[in-house]
Amino acid sequence: MDAERVRCRSALLVFWEQGYEDAGLATLTDAMGISTTSTYAAFGNKEELYSATKTAATMLTVQYAKARPGIKFNAVEPGTTATDMTAGFGIGRSPAESTRAVVRLATLDADGPTGTFSDENGPLPW
């Protein structure tokens, strides 16, 4: 695995464990094993780094789907959800509403899609 993918995966784990707001730049750079200057040079800012980690996670979906055809792997865009991360903006629908797409993909039958990036209306173009 190349160094950039390893760094994105490391940052993804920090965001996953701590959430966007609580994931400090120092923690992210430590996890990635690079300096703050290198982080800014490679990703621009924390938001861009977060976007890169989301892209990496979505692309892993396709790789897992290809490697394990007997298991359904799908990435979900649940829509803007009212969470701790969006609270300051006063936007997003309830988590219960946003989970509909997640539940739909988690309960697919054997002939359902795999390797997709979907929202509540179905597969989205990559």
Rank of each mutant, 00 (worst) to 15 (best):
E47K: 13
M1I: 13
T27Q: 14
F89V: 12
V103R: 14
G19H: 07
L13H: 08
E97C: 03
A26W: 08
E77H: 14
L12P: 01
Y40S: 08
Y40V: 01
A57W: 10
K66M: 05
D111Q: 10
W126E: 11
A67V: 02
A31P: 12
S98M: 01
A57F: 14
A101W: 00
Y40I: 02
D30R: 10
G33P: 02
P95W: 00
S51E: 14
M1V: 15
A23K: 06
M85E: 14
T58M: 15
T61E: 09
T116N: 05
N74M: 01
E48T: 12
A31H: 02
Y40P: 00
F89Q: 11
F73L: 12
F89D: 01
M59G: 00
L105F: 04
F117M: 03
V6R: 09
A56C: 04
S10A: 14
L105D: 02
D30S: 11
Q18A: 09
G92A: 01
L108F: 11
D119E: 10
C8S: 09
A3G: 13
R9T: 08
G115L: 03
F43N: 11
P78V: 15
A67H: 10
D111Y: 06
A23D: 09
P69L: 09
A3T: 15
E21M: 07
R104C: 13
A87S: 09
R100F: 00
S38V: 15
A82K: 00
G24A: 12
S51F: 12
P69W: 01
V102I: 12
F73D: 06
P125M: 09
W126T: 13
D22H: 07
T80F: 04
G24P: 04
A57Q: 07
T99C: 01
T55S: 14
V6S: 03
E21A: 08
D109I: 08
R104P: 06
E120G: 09
N121M: 11
R100H: 02
V62D: 03
E21G: 05
E97M: 06
W16P: 01
I34W: 05
R68Q: 10
G92K: 00
A75M: 02
A26Q: 08
A110R: 10
L25M: 15
G24N: 05
L12N: 05
R100Q: 14
S38L: 15
F43Q: 10
E47D: 05
T39E: 09
E17G: 06
T53I: 09
G115F: 10
D30L: 07
Q63P: 03
T55W: 13
T86W: 00
G115C: 09
A56W: 04
T58H: 14
I34D: 13
G90D: 13
A23R: 03
P113N: 10
G112S: 10
S98Q: 00
M85G: 06
V6L: 07
E47A: 12
S51M: 14
P78W: 11
D2S: 09
I91C: 03
R100P: 00
Y50W: 07
R7Y: 06
A96N: 02
P125E: 15
D30A: 11
G92T: 01
T83M: 13
E97R: 04
S118V: 05
E4S: 08
N45H: 00
S94R: 02
T80K: 04
A23W: 10
N121V: 14
A42Y: 07
G112Y: 06
G79R: 08
D84V: 06
T29I: 05
D84Y: 13
G112N: 08
V76H: 03
S38W: 11
G90T: 08
T39L: 14
